Simulated scan of single mutants.
Amino acid sequence: MAEKTIGVGDVAPDFTLPAQTGEQVTLADYRGDKVVVLYFYPKDDTRGCTAEACAFRDSYEEFAEAGAQVIGISSDSIASHEKFANKYNLPFVLVADERGEVRKRYGVPATLGILPGRVTYVIDRTGVVRHTFTSMVNIGKHIEGALEIVRNLAHEQASA
């Protein structure tokens, strides 16, 4: 059962999960330093997920220049993530939520009740969710929407 769906204005639930490198990634480690673009996706090396990962890859430099870290998350294993990241030269972190616990904490919905959903969150430097986008098919909007918010947050910080 999914918990409350995390939305704009909520504090992003913290987590520590293994990345494709085997290193542990903790969301709270980015607080005060980077905006985090956290995107949940259904499965490594499937058509839609590959398109989304490659779109994040192709925009990665723009995210990095605006002070953001991209993190992909699915229930695939560390080995699956490593193979996926290497195959498509993904420059960002993929974390393994093998039991789906973080997905549940964020309240990411399943599509048709069975397929893990596709949701992107932009989390500001204080750990607050500033943007969410849910769509299984409109992959480009995940990247465009997140990049726009990240740039706005960078601009806000620069003028603060």
Rank of each mutant, 00 (worst) to 15 (best):
F40T: 01
G127Q: 03
V25R: 00
G117I: 08
H142T: 05
Y39L: 04
D97I: 08
L90R: 09
Q20L: 07
Y121W: 05
D44F: 01
Y88N: 12
A68I: 06
L112R: 13
F92A: 07
R57A: 04
L38C: 01
L147D: 01
A66D: 04
F133R: 09
A110N: 14
S77I: 00
K87G: 12
A28N: 12
I6L: 08
M136W: 14
E98A: 11
H81T: 03
G7Q: 07
D44K: 07
R47P: 14
P13F: 02
T134A: 15
R103I: 13
E52C: 06
V11C: 12
R118L: 06
F15C: 06
L115W: 12
S77Q: 02
V128H: 12
V70N: 03
F92V: 09
S75A: 11
D97Y: 06
G107L: 05
L115H: 11
R99H: 14
L147N: 04
V102W: 03
N86Q: 15
A158P: 10
A19H: 10
R125W: 10
Y106L: 09
L27M: 03
E156G: 12
V93I: 15
Q20P: 04
I71V: 05
A160R: 13
A2P: 15
N152A: 15
A66Q: 04
D44A: 01
A85V: 14
A79C: 13
Y106H: 09
S135E: 01
A53V: 10
G67N: 01
T120M: 08
S59Y: 11
T126Q: 15
S75Q: 10
I78E: 00
N86M: 13
T134G: 14
F92E: 06
N138L: 14
A64T: 13
D97F: 04
K34V: 01
E61V: 13
T134L: 15
I73G: 01
R125K: 15
N86C: 13
M136H: 13
C49I: 13
E61K: 13
N138A: 15
A53C: 10
R31V: 02
A110D: 14
S74C: 07
R31K: 08
T5S: 11
A96M: 08
L153N: 01
D45V: 04
G9L: 05
R151H: 08
A53T: 10
P116D: 00
V122Q: 06
R31P: 03
H131S: 10
A85T: 11
G113P: 07
I71A: 03
A154H: 13
V36M: 05
G145V: 08
E62R: 12
A55F: 10
V25S: 01
K83D: 09
D76W: 04
G32D: 00
V95S: 05
E82C: 12
P109D: 06
L153H: 05
G22L: 04
S74A: 08
G9W: 06
V108K: 02
A146L: 03
N152Y: 14
V37C: 00
E62D: 14
T21P: 05
Y88F: 14
V129G: 03
I114R: 13
N86W: 12
P18H: 00
V93N: 07
V11M: 13
Q157M: 15
I71N: 02
A55I: 11
E101K: 12
